[in-house]
Structure formats: C-alpha cells, structure tokens
C-alpha cells in the first residue's frame, strides 16, 4: 500500500513534469540562472582564495644572524621558532647558501663581485626565512625573535636584525585586505544565495499557483496531503536536478573559454583545471542546491494551498 502510493506519487510527478513542458522549461530556465550565480560564486571564491594564498606565500620575515653565530646556535633558534603554533614553515639559509645567492644576484655586477673576492672571509651571516600561517601572526613571531635578540649577560648576541618592521606595513595591509575581501566575499555569497533561493521559491510557487484549483479538487476527492503534495515535490526535484545538470555542463565550455584569461589574470588559478579537478564538488553544490531548492520550494508552495 505504501509502496503503491509512493510509486503513484513518483509517476504523477514525472508525468506532470513532461506534460507541463512549457511551465517546466520556464521554471528550469529561471533555476538555471540562479544556479549559475551559485556556481559562479564557487569559481570566484576559488579564484580569490588561490590568489590570496599566492600573495600570502610571498610574504615572510627574515631573521639575520651575525657571522659570529655558529650553525648550532642558528639551528637552535630555528627549532624554537618551528615550535611556535603560528609558524607554518622555516627555511634555514646557511652562510654558504647566502653567498651563493648573493653571487647569483650580482652576477652582472663585476665591481661588487670583485669586492667580495677581496675579503678572505664570507661576510654574510646565516638567516631564517619564516612563514606564518596567517599574515596577522607575524607580529607574534617577530616579538619572539626580538626576545631572542635580547641576550642574557655574558652571552653573545647572535641575531643581527629581524626585518619585520620593514615589512610591517605591507604585512598589515595584506592582512587587512585579506580579511576584508573574505568578509565581502562571504556577504556577497550570502546575499546572492538568499536572492537565488527567493527567486526559485517564487518561480515554483507561481507554477503551483496555477494548479491551486486542482489541489482543492484532489482534496475533495479524498486525497491525503502527501498524495497531493508528493507529485509537486517530485516535479520540483526534477526541475532542480535537470536545471542543475544543464548549469553544470554550461560551465564546461565556459571554463575552457575562460581558461587562459583566468590564468593570466589570477596567476595561479585556471578555470578549466578548477572545473575538472573539482567536478565532484561542483556537482554536489550545483545539482544539490537545485534539488534541495526545488523540493523545499514545492513543499512550501503547496502547503500554502493545502487547507484541511
């Protein structure tokens, strides 16, 4: 009995979907527009995130050691810094490596290289390049390093300087910018999602509004609420599913088309690579939102016309 009812509800929904072809098509087109907005937000957020990550990656602070500092001393500081919870990575550049880098950087500058040759000893100190997990955390790291600089009596100073204060302005701006872009992005996403939900809800409500007399008749004939509501929900799910699939496939040619443009604009972000490597996630969000929105909208819309 329950199985039969379920089967009939599904069948009535599918028949309704195909029979009201024009209404179905119009509803799905509107849903596609809103699902397209949701999909675009996924792309935008991914592009923004990868750009921000990239910029964040470029910011670090360096602790420069005196040439008198021994390798053990430097590595001791490195281990201590690595144990800070805010620190993501620490790169140790030995004195020899610093010299290689220096020579490489000045390879066209014979005068400087000659001056270097004049010295019997490597004038460069070792350094640590430190990356924090978040730009706002550099201050904590810098404070820690400066604490290390203030040496106890009798001990030798080993850290020459920490370049946090030179970088502070850039770091502060970047962390401010990241935070505000993320907040704005979230607000934008919420706004567009709410708008999309309302548009879809209203579209389905209008489609069902034309059937309000039928709903009344069904109830007079003795149909239970679920028997009336069920087929509309099935129809709503179908609208959402088909609109979601079409939207998802629409993003494919778009991703190809935008592929090189996005790569050159965002640097690390390529729309086609994102589409293919995140297909599952996109499917889940676009088709999933379609199905959920379709079902919920139908449910709410029919409920308005169910008296009893």
């Amino acid at each position: 009995m329950l199985g039969t009812t379920f089967k009939r509800i599904i069948r009535a929904g599918v028949v309704g979907f195909f029979r009201n072809a024009f209404v179905s098509l119009a509803t799905m087109l509107v849903m596609m527009i809103t699902l397209f907005v949701i999909g675009s937000l996924l792309f935008m957020n991914a592009a923004l995130e990868s750009t921000l990550d990239q910029v964040k990656d470029k910011v670090d602070i360096n602790a420069y050691f005196l040439t008198t500092a021994s390798e053990e001393q430097v590595l001791e500081v490195k281990t201590a810094v690595e144990h800070l919870p805010e620190v993501m990575a620490v790169q140790y550049i030995s004195r020899e490596e610093a010299l290689v880098i220096f020579k490489e950087r000045h390879k066209d500058d014979q005068l400087t290289l000659q001056a270097l040759e004049e010295l019997d000893e490597n004038p460069l100190g070792a350094s640590l390049a430190i990356r924090a997990k978040d730009p706002s955390q550099y201050e904590i790291v810098a404070d820690f390093l400066e604490g290390q600089m203030a040496v106890a009596e009798g001990e030798q100073q080993i850290i020459e300087k920490v370049n946090y204060h030179q970088n502070k302005v850039v770091i502060d701006r970047l962390s401010g910018l990241t935070a505000s872009i993320e907040t704005a992005g979230l607000a934008f996403t919420i706004f567009l999602t709410v708008a999309s939900v309302m548009i879809i809800f209203n579209t389905i409500r209008l489609a069902i509004y034309t059937n309000r007399d039928e709903i009344e008749v069904m109830q007079l004939v003795g149909a239970s609420n679920w028997f009336v509501r069920g087929p509309y929900i099935v129809e709503g799910v179908l609208y959402g599913f088909v609109a979601g699939l079409f939207t998802l496939f629409l993003f494919y040619p778009l991703s190809i088309y935008m592929s090189s443009a996005t790569e050159s604009f965002f640097g690390s972000f390529n729309s086609l690579v994102f589409y293919t490597s995140n297909f599952g996630m996109l499917f889940k969000y676009i088709v999933g939102s379609g199905v959920v929105l379709g079902a919920v909208s139908s449910f709410l819309a029919v409920r308005r016309y169910l008296g009893v």
Binding site: T5, G16, R19, N20, V217, M218, V221, A223, F227
Partner: peptide, 16 residues
Amino acid sequence: IDSKTVYENIAFALEV
C-alpha cells in the same frame, strides 16, 4: 483535474 486525462481523473479517486 485539467492536467489529467479522463481516465486519470477517474483513476485518481481510486488511487487516493
């Protein structure tokens, strides 16, 4: 029910 055929209209009363 306008969206259902004559047969389906009558069958509907039995289905419910």
